[in-house]
């Protein structure tokens, strides 16, 4: 292994490698003479980990944030699926599928973080030794949001909050994607997109369930139309979804089937990202802090 060659190779993709390592100039110098060959791989490993630690930490933070939302969703569906009389028989297979998906996402993200050397998020009162560790029986979540939503007593309310969680989840994933930009993280970006598409399928399904049940005047489509929320109280989760500008192009000015693209379809055609602080503010009331 030629250490100078390694640095030269890294410099091709990261011209700033020497600057990143400059704080460790003395260490670099010492490689020239004193360090025993056997110790080299470990020493090099820890040196690069320090230099690139910021990037790893940004990816880890983004994945841990996604994991936190997956736990919230899993617990929501797990309680619902185990609450007799809440979900009609015809709708139960769908929600069992969704619950299983959220658990798969928890496991996948946990493994990915562990592999990266980042400690995976676990919810409050997490007990690794329990029957279903991802399920937190008490003390972590308040899905009623302080008694506002009777989600496990009223099916319509359950659906409203489920739809909002899924739509917000899709938007939250979108908001985290920039952490995975760049060729070094292209696999993470791909996997995050693969997960977010399944969240979008959940959102579409729940919206369709609500459409079939004749949900009020809103009569939801499987996609987000303008910034229309299921109920006014959840408007904040949909702010910005009425955006019609993409890359400086006004979608509603483009030619449509007749005339220009209708506003409803122009907004529905693009899911819009939400940043982490906004998502946290939206979901925190469902957590017991």
């Amino acid at each position: 292994m030629n250490f100078r060659n390694i640095l030269a190779e890294i410099e091709k993709t990261d011209p700033e490698v020497y600057e990143r390592l400059s704080g460790r100039r003395d260490v670099l110098r010492s490689f020239g003479s004193k360090v025993a060959a056997a110790a080299l791989p470990i020493a090099v490993g820890s040196m690069f980990k320090k230099a690139y630690g910021k990037t790893t930490s940004a990816v880890g933070d983004a994945l841990n944030f996604a994991l936190k939302l997956e736990y919230l969703e899993f617990n929501y569906y797990h309680v619902a699926n185990n609450t007799g009389g809440l979900i009609p028989g015809s709708d139960q297979p769908g929600f069992q599928t969704i619950e299983a998906h959220e658990l798969s996402h928890i496991n996948f993200l946990t493994n990915a973080l562990t592999t990266m050397g980042v400690t995976p998020y676990t919810p409050k009162n997490y007990n690794a030794a329990s029957n279903i560790p991802a399920y937190i029986p008490s003390g972590a979540y308040d899905f009623t949001k302080g008694g506002t939503y009777h989600v496990f007593e009223d099916y319509k309310t359950f659906l409203i909050v489920a739809q909002t969680f899924e739509d917000t989840g899709v938007r939250a994933y979108q908001g985290q994607m920039p952490a995975f930009f760049g060729s070094a993280n292209s696999t993470v970006l791909q996997q995050a997109l693969e997960i977010s598409c399944v969240e979008a399928r959940h959102a579409a399904h729940i919206r369709y369930v609500r459409r079939l049940s004749g949900a009020a005047a809103e009569y939801p489509a499987p996609w987000i139309t303008n910034n229309i929320p299921p109920i006014v109280a959840l408007q904040a989760n949909y702010l910005g979804e009425d955006n019609v500008g993409q890359e400086g192009i006004t979608i509603t000015s483009l030619p449509g089937a007749s005339g220009t693209i209708p506003q409803a379809s122009a907004t529905a055609a693009f899911d819009e990202p939400l940043d982490a602080p906004t998502v946290l503010a939206l979901v925190t009331p469902f957590f017991i802090l």
């Binding site: 994933y173 598409c197 996609w223 819009e272």
Partner: peptide, 13 residues
């Protein structure tokens, strides 16, 4: 990214 989740919604529907 903004478009792919919408295509997934279509598929699901």
């Amino acid at each position: 990214n903004k478009m792919v989740t919408v295509e997934a919604r279509h598929s699901a529907y």
